[in-house]
Computed example of a mutant assay.
Amino acid sequence: MRCTLDPGSSHGPAWRRLLLTGALLASCTCSASSELPSLTRLNPLTEGASAHLPAPESPDGVLAISWFRGREAQPAAMIFSPEGLPGPAHTGRETLGAQGSLDIRNVTTKDSGCYTAMLETHAGHRRVTQLIRVHNSPKSVPLMTFPENIQGTIQSDLNYSVILEWVTTMNPEPVLTWTLNGKICGSGEKLFIRRLSREQLGTYVCTGRNSKELVSSEPVTVLLAQANAVPTDAEPIEPDPTLSLSGGPAIGLLVAGSLGMVALVGSVCYTTFQSQRTDRQRIRICC
């Protein structure tokens, strides 16, 4: 409904403000009535995983999108504004993905609940709510392995046997599933690798599930044994640098050495002469 204001009417300023307010309320009411709320349930997640909430599609074209926690688009619950700016409910783990989707990394059980996307389209506003549930991370239990794993790592040569065994008791009996690098590779209490190949290298995890709980093993990574270290050539040892002199310093050193030699010879001769003289004097006195 549109209200036309006649510039020439006799209504005063107060009436004009009232009419404008009514027109704005009517516009908001029409926009609110054009919202099409819906609820989409996403697959359950485990703590530590990443959640991806795709942006809803609209046949009218999306001009802007904002995200909120909960079912209501309250300012205090805003995660991202239509301009893509973080809001009061932003925790630092949320990012905007392609085409306005919402990505949440390292989800926790506190992230379970509804998330509302508010779309601004050519035809008005549209509200879409998505629900995610986050389960507790399954506890980890050790595996028995052959060869023995050291800090979750087994080193083995190709064509050798590797055995991984589930040794945790669960009641009722669980269904055990083995995965290699995230892909299912076996079932049962033991995973027996008869002849290890390169395709069987990687990280193994066993998951036990019964009607009460879900338990996962600690990951065990199978690697090739490290080859013997190849000796490396010793680095050449440079000889100690020798002192070399030339020019004036060399002549000076030579002269100093010669004078020192002359002084030494003279001292020896003088000492010998004095000794002989003393001996002659003693002989004369005795005679």
Rank of each mutant, 00 (worst) to 15 (best):
R195W: 05
N171E: 15
P174F: 02
E173L: 11
G208H: 02
K190T: 14
G186I: 15
E173P: 09
C185G: 03
G188L: 13
K183S: 07
L214K: 10
G188A: 12
G202E: 08
C206M: 05
P174R: 08
V175W: 05
K190A: 06
E189R: 12
Q200K: 12
C185A: 08
N210R: 09
M170R: 11
T177I: 14
R195Q: 11
T207Y: 00
L180A: 02
S197F: 05
L214A: 01
K212Q: 13
T169H: 12
E199S: 13
T179S: 11
E189S: 10
R194A: 09
R194G: 01
N171F: 11
T207A: 01
T169M: 10
G188M: 13
S187W: 08
T203K: 06
E213K: 06
G186F: 10
S197L: 15
G208W: 01
V215I: 15
Q200R: 09
G182F: 04
N210P: 09
F192D: 05
R198E: 15
S211E: 12
P174M: 05
E189F: 03
L201K: 07
K190P: 02
V215W: 01
S211L: 12
L201G: 03
L176R: 03
G208F: 04
N181M: 06
V175H: 07
G186S: 09
K190Y: 09
L214V: 13
S197W: 09
P174H: 06
Y204L: 09
F192M: 09
T179G: 00
R194L: 10
T203F: 02
K212Y: 08
R198Q: 13
S211Q: 13
K190Q: 15
T168W: 06
P174S: 05
M170H: 05
K212W: 06
W178Q: 05
S187I: 05
Y204A: 01
E199G: 06
E189L: 11
T203G: 07
G202A: 06
L196E: 01
I184G: 00
T207K: 04
C206G: 02
E199W: 05
R194P: 00
E173T: 15
F192K: 14
T207W: 01
T179A: 08
R194E: 13
V215C: 07
T168E: 14
K190V: 14
C185Y: 02
N210L: 07
G202D: 10
